[in-house]
Design a protein around this nucleic acid. Structure first.
Length: 237
DNA sequence: GTCGGAGGCCTTTTTACTTCA
DNA sequence: CATGAAGTAAAAAGGCCTCCG
């Protein structure tokens, strides 16, 4: 190090102007720390520019009665302190964003679970072998009643008449359970085992993942999913 | 291409000050 | 109240790196 600063040697001798009385007073009791006035000037300059041009550094040093080297070191330390504070601020922001994203993820998980239950119910309705006495759902019965009134009472339950695979995607069956039907509960099906449910859905479309996979989702993926055009009923198309 | 000076960043040391048992 | 250890913040030193002439 080419320059060594001695507080005892006083740097004011190199200054054309004598230090303020408060500064001198403070210096007597604290030969190392800069005075409030000096700090204020340095801070003001730092707000303008965090790196000093050599010319400005000399000028500021002259004005404050400090060595240019002291001004340079002060700016260096100030930049380090500012950077440290900035890191803290950035961390706080990141933490807030993470918390927001995590709660959103949980909400989406719940929503997904609800939708899976709806799917389960639909598949249950469609694929369950129908017993003669139960071949018509209540709604189907209602539809049939409508049809019967139109056809003179001759039409039979659709399931009974046409138990083909094409029926499985019958529009009116889907119409029974709209996507905003939130009255469906897992207990209705005795399906409390999430794994079984998910396996079922995997079989259904081969695209949905397990809870373990959810944990591996990138947040961006999550956001993308939440904003995609995908609708649950696309499952059928 | 390389050499040397200037200046920046990072880490560590020194010093003054505060807090607390 | 006095005192000393521990903690903290600021000033400064030293090393290393990059840039530029």
């Amino acid at each position: 190090m080419e320059y060594t600063y001695s507080a005892e040697a006083e740097t004011y001798t190199s200054s054309s102007t004598s230090p303020p009385s408060a500064m001198r007073k403070k210096r007597n009791s604290n030969t190392r720390r800069f005075s409030d006035e000096q700090i204020k000037s340095l801070e003001t300059m730092f707000e303008t520019e965090s790196r000093l041009e050599p010319r400005k550094k000399l000028q500021l040093a002259r004005e404050l009665g400090l060595q240019p080297r002291q001004v340079a070191i002060w700016f260096q330390n100030k930049r380090a302190r500012w950077k440290s504070k900035q890191l803290e601020r950035d961390y706080t922001i990141l933490q807030t964003n993470y918390n927001t994203l995590a709660s959103r993820f949980e909400a989406l998980k719940k929503e997904k679970q609800t939708l899976l239950i709806q799917l389960q119910k639909l598949n249950h309705l469609i694929q369950k072998p129908m017993e003669p006495s139960q071949r018509c759902t209540q709604v189907e019965a209602a539809n049939i009643m409508d049809s019967e009134s139109e056809n003179g009472g001759t039409m039979k339950c659709e399931a009974e008449m046409k138990p083909s695979p094409s029926m499985e995607r019958s529009e009116h069956v889907l119409g029974v359970l709209s996507d905003d039907d939130t009255s469906i509960k897992v207990e209705d099906f005795g399906l409390e085992d999430e794994t079984g449910l998910l396996n079922f859905v995997k079989h259904a479309d081969g695209s949905l993942s397990s809870p373990e996979d959810w944990g591996a989702f990138e947040s961006n993926d999550l956001l993308d999913q939440s904003t995609s055009d995908y609708q649950w009923w696309d499952f059928w198309s």
